[in-house]
Structure formats: C-alpha cells, structure tokens
C-alpha cells in the first residue's frame, strides 16, 4: 500500500501523458464545438422556405453562407457540382448579408440553390445552432438532420455527403 502511494504520481503522469499523446496524434481539433442537431428533426424554416422540400421524400442540403465570407467563396463550386451532377436540392440561406449583395454574388458565381432565404438578423441561424458561416446541414428524406458541417465543404466531405444524398432519394 505504502509502496503504491509512491508510484501513484508516476501513474497519474502516465495517464495524463496518454491522453495528451492521444490528443496530438488523433488530429483532434480543439476548437471543434460539435453539434447537437445531428439525429434530430430539422428546425422549421420560416415562411415557404422549407415547404415541399424538407420531409418530402428526398434529402435536402441546407447551406448558410454570406457574400462577405471568404470560405463561402471557396466552397461554392462544391454546391455547383452537387447541383449539376447530383441534382441535389439545396436551400441557401444568406446570413447577415444584404439581399442585393447576396444576389450579385450569386449572379457572379452561379446560383446552385433550389431556394434562397435571407437571415439578416441571425434568428434562423440561432434555431439551427449555427456558429458562423459557412455551415451546411444534410437532412434526410424523413426530415432528420444527418450531417452538420461547420466550415466550408471540401472534396473530402463529399465522401460522406454523397452516399446519404443518393441513398435517400
């Protein structure tokens, strides 16, 4: 027992170091805040925005973006591609953006959105647990949120999006 007490500090260190090593090697992002939306039914969208699209037998992507946001510019081609190649239904919601700026932005870059909403005061975003733009949600045919991406969609993310998008339709 007494002997054990003298080894205890070393054991504690081993456990701590194990966690630190695990954290460093796992590539964990300490800034990631997770999402509680996944697995829940999608929050309602105001007005006609989601009507006939969400819970309508086909998966839907919901993308929050803004014309002033650089990462949104970077991910924009992904949505163009999902729209043209996969025929995906995408609802775009411009967050804290002036409608004319949004429209000009889409005109310049192409408009992949089935429907376009505006969330100038961030109230829709709060209901969706948004932390900033861009963020993207995948909602399945039953209206359940299956994926929630914080930050821009990349080539790698398509690997998780496509099976759900295709499988559900």
């Amino acid at each position: 027992m007494n002997r054990f007490l003298f080894v205890l500090p070393l054991l504690t260190l081993a456990i701590l170091a194990g966690f630190f090593g695990w954290s460093l090697l796992s590539g964990r992002d300490p800034a990631s805040i997770g999402s509680v939306m996944v697995g829940r039914s999608a929050p309602t969208l105001p007005g006609q925005l989601g009507e006939g699209l969400i819970k309508a037998g086909k998966p839907v992507l919901v993308n929050f973006f803004a014309s002033w946001c650089a990462p949104c510019l970077a991910e924009h081609p992904m949505f163009e591609r999902l729209k043209s190649r996969e025929g995906a239904t995408i609802i775009g919601i411009a967050w804290k953006d002036k409608p004319e700026a949004t429209r000009a932005w889409l005109q310049r870059l192409g408009d992949p959105f089935t429907r376009l909403g505006f969330d100038q005061d961030g109230k829709i975003a709060l209901d969706w647990g948004l932390s900033g733009v861009p963020e993207t949600y995948l909602i399945d045919a039953q209206g359940i949120v299956r994926l929630h991406f914080r930050g821009p969609i990349t080539e790698r993310d398509l690997g998780t999006i496509l099976p759900l998008l295709r499988g559900g339709s």
Binding site: F6, V7, P9, L10, L13, A14, A17, F20, G21
Partner: peptide, 16 residues
Amino acid sequence: LGFLLLVTGGGLALYA
C-alpha cells in the same frame, strides 16, 4: 510532450 515525460516521468520514477 516527450520532454515533459522525460523530466516529470524521470523525476517521478526516481521518486518512486
């Protein structure tokens, strides 16, 4: 982390 392990671990092992 390696350094921390050497210093602290070495010290605590010697201690034990």
